[in-house]
Every structure is written in structure tokens, then in C-alpha cells.
Design a protein around this nucleic acid. Structure first.
Lengths: 141, 141
DNA sequence: TATAGTGTGTATATACAGTATGAACACCAT
DNA sequence: ATGGTGTTCATACTGTATATACACACTATA
């Protein structure tokens, strides 16, 4: 038996490529567009524990935005436990509980779906009508 | 035959009562909470053409908010053709094309539902899973 | 083994847009 | 005149995005 120190040797991966698309015309803030999409990549399994994300500077340059905006996105992801941000080194994907990943995905959709249902009730639309739209929208893509 | 002038004699209804609930903790602006709910009442048929809405001052007092905020809500509804706002008199429900009301309701839900579908795809959830949630959420209420 | 250099993340001060406000104003009816 | 409407103006606050200067970690190399 030996003691395992916290030297994070398993966080020496190469920087990973990552598709992020931001819209300046959207009313959603840029930093949430970024964090939301990175969260999606992690929950979908395209980013794995220990993966090194692009530095806030590099990502900022690619997306033509400020460093502070990318930092804010990474900060949010760190607070939610998706990243480990290490000064001077970089930002790494944190370990995820695989059993909870499916639940997390469902929770994200449930939250926004709940609002749609509430608004539907306000307008007097029933399940059948909304479901019909959902079906069509899914088939379209 | 006689000429009918635009003196709006058909807009002399009594002030109508109207349930509006606002949340200060919500991230949705107060003025859109109001306009959204009034729009819902109109589209659902609970408010009809010519109905007199509470004055911006009265509504502001009831909701414990500023007159300017209620005005902004009414302004938005006027721009979208749901209200006729008359200085010195009051704010009235405008005539709605009944054939288009159903479509308007569906359009509102479709817009928000589209975002849910896009996010679902991003997370790799399929129609069956989202539909299951939709069903449950509808049954719950 | 120092240390300069280049990469990382961090903190401060600032600008701007959207939201909400009070108070003074203008219009309409009686 | 009076008391009800909606309207306008100047102001404050919050959230978003920014540039610039700072602090930390690695590493090449003298």
C-alpha cells in the first residue's frame, strides 16, 4: 500500500478540439452560450475526464470575444463541477459520475420543458397538440 | 345608409377583472411577465374585443410596481396589435382575427419548443425520451 | 541552479445596454 | 375645476462585455 498524493498526474492530456458556435444576435449572453455548449459536450461524452480545454485566451481569440467572457464561462462550469481550473496550467474536464450524467441531461430538458407546459396551459393547449408539434420538430432536423 | 365615424362607441365596456401574477425573483422582466399573461388571456378568449383593461396606475398599485413598468407592458401589447391604448381614456382589447388566434397560440409554443428540441439534440436525447417527460409534466398539473 | 520567457488563469476599473423607478406633464370626461 | 386617463424626462441599478495590468506554472538555457 502506498499513499496517493494529489499531484494530478492524470491531467496531462493534450488539448482537445471542441466545436463552439456563438451568436451575437442572440439574446442569450455569450458566456452562457459557451458554458451551455461545453456542458453538452461533457454530458454527451465527447469530452472526458482530464481533457484539457483550450485556454481562455485561445478560445477568446477564436470566438473574437474578450478573455473575460471566456473566463466567466469557465468559472460557471467550475462552480457546477464540470471543470477544474488551475491557475498557470489550464482548465480540465472534471470527473463525472456516469450514473448521474443521464439524469443531468434529462433535468436540463425537463426544466425548459416545464416552462413550455406552463405556457401551454395558459393558452389552453392540450398534450396532444403540443406533442404533435414536438414530433414534427424532431422529425424536421 | 349612414356614415360610421371612428368615435369608438363600442369601446365603452366596464373595466374587466384580470388575473396577473408577477414574480420578482424571476429572471424574466416584469413588463414581459405582464404582457405575456395578458396576451394569454386574450388568445384564450377570456378577454374580448372592447374590454377595458385596468389603468396603468391601478394595475401598478395592485402589483406594487411602477406605473412606467405597466405602461411598458401595455405598449408592447399595443405594438403587437392586442390593445388599443387611448390617451386620457384607457386601454382596450383590440379586435382579434379569430381564425388566426389558434395559429398565434401554436406559434408561441412552437418557438419555445424549438429551443428545447435543439438542446435535446445537443445532449443526444431522442423524441421518445422528451415526449415521455412532456407527457408526465402535462399529467402532473 | 538560477532566471528569463512564454504559456496559463486572475483582478481592477470602465463602458454600455436593459430594466425599473418617481415626478411632472398632457389629454379626456364630467 | 377636478379627477380620471396615458405620456415623457431624468435617474438609478443591474447584468454583460471589455482592455489592461497582474500573479502563477512550466521550461529552456546560460
Amino acid at each position: 500500500m502506498y499513499i496517493q498524493y494529489e499531484h494530478h498526474e492524470h491531467y496531462e492530456h493534450m488539448e482537445v478540439s471542441m466545436k463552439i458556435i456563438i451568436s451575437n444576435s442572440s439574446n442569450e449572453p455569450i458566456y452562457t452560450q459557451i458554458s451551455r455548449q461545453i456542458k453538452g459536450h461533457i454530458l454527451k461524452g465527447e469530452l472526458k475526464e482530464g481533457d484539457l480545454l483550450p485556454s481562455i485566451r485561445k478560445l477568446a481569440k477564436e470566438l473574437q470575444i474578450s478573455v473575460i467572457t471566456t473566463k466567466r464561462a469557465y468559472d460557471e462550469l467550475e462552480k457546477e463541477g464540470f471543470l477544474e481550473v488551475v491557475q498557470g496550467k489550464g482548465s480540465y474536464v472534471a470527473g463525472q459520475n456516469k450514473e448521474l450524467m443521464k439524469e443531468k441531461k434529462l433535468k436540463i430538458i425537463e426544466d425548459s420543458l416545464m416552462k413550455v407546459v406552463e405556457e401551454s396551459r395558459l393558452l389552453g393547449l392540450d398534450y396532444g397538440e403540443v406533442n404533435e408539434m414536438l414530433k414534427i420538430l424532431f422529425e424536421e432536423g
